[in-house]
């Protein structure tokens, strides 16, 4: 059972990274909104995962993305950051009766409203760290924040679409 879980995680890791670097890398809306769908992979790791493992996975995923974006370290830093925050945030959002063991934090298991309040702040945090590190300072703060804001919207919408398309109750990826 555990084995099967790990294999699906590895499979979805490869899929998310490929989609990110081959497809979404080329899409920028209105000069400002980027889509970093790969963090969906990080956010959808089962709830009971330990923070140490999460951060290592975040680091590896970030490095893989950085390799293609030629931005060594930036995505890694942002991913490690949200992976560190993730479990605290999940604890704060615990629904009544707690999480079932092996729950994947998706729409189908917890509902749209819960999912939004879980995902949206983490996406925004990730994008803020990402763009601030990229601009390497606060010189273009307004521009950076607007970039982060619009990218958050874009990433969130694409994440919702993938949720409804691929993470249905019967056939989970």
């Amino acid at each position: 059972m555990l084995n099967k879980g790990i294999i699906t995680q590895i499979f979805s890791f490869i899929l998310y990274v490929l989609v990110q670097v081959l497809l979404l890398k080329n899409i920028v809306l209105f000069d400002k909104s980027f889509c970093f769908l790969y963090i969906a992979f990080l956010l959808l790791i089962p709830v009971e995962a330990k923070v140490l493992g999460l951060m290592v996975v975040g680091f590896i995923t970030g490095l893989a993305i950085d390799t293609f974006y030629d931005s060594l370290g930036i995505h890694a830093a942002a991913s490690v950051f949200i992976m560190f925050v993730r479990n605290y945030w999940l604890n704060m959002l615990t629904p009544q009766g707690g999480y079932d063991s092996g729950t994947v934090p998706t729409i189908s298991s917890n509902g749209l409203r819960w999912f939004t309040s879980y995902v949206l702040p983490l996406i925004f945090l990730h994008h803020c760290v990402l763009f601030l590190l990229e601009s390497w300072g606060f010189g273009l703060l307004g521009f950076t924040l607007s970039k982060a804001f619009f990218s958050t919207c874009f990433t969130y919408i694409v994440m919702l679409i993938t949720q409804y398309l691929f993470y249905t109750k019967k056939r989970s990826l």
Binding site: M55, G62, S71, L72, G73, I74, A77, V80, W136
Partner: peptide, 20 residues
């Protein structure tokens, strides 16, 4: 340990960014 590893990984990232 969680916080220390967090710091450790972030420092690695920053070092990579600066070097890059």
């Amino acid at each position: 340990r969680a916080f220390l590893i967090f710091l450790f990984l972030e420092v690695i990232c920053l070092w990579l960014i600066v070097r890059n």
